[in-house]
C-alpha cells in the first residue's frame, strides 16, 4: 500500500499532462475539423475542396504514431524544432481533425435541406444560417460520434509517450523501470485511465439525453408584460 502511495505524485502529474494533451488536441481537432467540414460541403469550390480532401486522406491513411514521429523527429530537419508537448498536441490534433471533419460533414448534411431554405427565405445570410440554424442541429447529430472520438483521443494520447511527453503512461514506465513492479504500476495506470474515461462516457451520454429535442418542453410561461 505504501508503495502505491509513493507512485501517486508522479502518476497524478502524468494524468494531468494526459488530460491537458487531450483537451488541447481536442480543441484543435474540433476547430480544424469544422473548418474542413465546411470547406468540403461545396465541392465546386475546387481550390479549397481538393487540398482539404488531400489533407484528410493523407492523415487518415497514415499511422498516428508516424505522424507523432514526423512532428517531433522529422520536422527539426526542416528547421522546425517543437517542444514534445507541442508536437504531441499538433500531431494528435491534426489526426483527429481529419476524422472529426467527416463526422461534422455528414452531420451538417443530415440537417434537412428545408432548414436552409426556410432560413434563407427570411433573409438570413449564409454565415447566420450556418451558425444559428444548421450547427445547433448538426451538433446534436454529431455529439455521440464526437464523444466517442474524444474518449479515443484520451487513450491515444498515450502514444505521445513515444516522443518523450511525460504523460500518464510514460510516468508509469519511468516508475516501472526503477522498481520492476510492472504489474502493480501498470494496473494502477489502467485504473487512472478508467477513472477519467468511464465518467466522461457517462457524462457524454447524459449530455446527449439533455440535448435531445424531443425532450424539450415548453418553459413555464413568463408573465406577459
Amino acid at each position: 500500500m505504501g508503495e502505491i502511495a509513493s507512485w501517486l505524485p508522479s502518476l497524478l502529474t502524468g494524468l494531468g499532462v494526459t488530460v491537458e494533451l487531450t483537451v488541447f488536441s481536442m480543441v484543435f481537432g474540433l476547430v480544424v475539423g469544422l473548418v474542413l467540414a465546411t470547406i468540403r460541403l461545396e465541392p465546386r469550390n475546387r481550390w479549397l475542396y481538393i487540398p482539404a480532401t488531400i489533407y484528410i486522406e493523407v492523415i487518415r491513411g497514415t499511422p498516428l504514431i508516424l505522424q507523432l514521429f514526423f512532428a517531433y523527429f522529422a520536422l527539426p530537419a526542416a528547421g522546425i524544432r517543437l517542444d514534445p508537448f507541442i508536437a504531441g498536441v499538433l500531431a494528435l490534433g491534426i489526426n483527429y481533425s481529419a476524422y472529426l471533419s467527416e463526422v461534422f460533414r455528414s452531420s451538417i448534411k443530415a440537417v434537412p435541406h428545408g432548414q436552409w431554405e426556410a432560413a434563407s427565405s427570411i433573409g438570413m445570410p449564409w454565415v447566420l444560417v450556418m451558425w444559428r440554424i444548421i450547427l445547433p442541429q448538426a451538433g446534436r447529430i454529431a455529439l455521440p460520434a464526437t464523444g466517442n472520438y474524444f474518449i479515443a483521443l484520451f487513450k491515444d494520447s498515450a502514444l505521445a509517450s513515444t516522443i518523450s511527453v511525460t504523460e500518464l503512461l510514460f510516468s508509469g514506465q519511468i516508475l516501472a523501470a526503477a522498481s520492476f513492479n510492472y504489474f502493480g504500476i501498470y494496473a494502477v495506470v489502467a485504473v487512472f485511465y478508467l477513472a477519467v474515461s468511464y465518467p466522461s462516457s457517462l457524462g457524454l451520454r447524459a449530455l446527449e439525453r439533455r440535448l435531445e429535442l424531443s425532450r424539450r418542453k415548453a418553459r413555464p410561461k413568463r408573465v406577459a408584460a
Binding site: G114, Q115, A118, I122, G123, M124, Q137
Partner: peptide
C-alpha cells in the same frame, strides 16, 4: 411558407418568429 413548415426544431415558436428580426 413551405409545404413542410420547416420550422427550426431547436427554437420555440416565439424564437422561430424572432430569429430573423433579431439576427438580420
Amino acid at each position: 411558407v413551405f409545404q413542410q413548415f420547416n420550422l427550426f426544431p431547436h427554437l420555440t415558436a416565439a424564437e422561430n418568429v424572432m430569429e430573423a428580426p433579431v439576427w438580420v
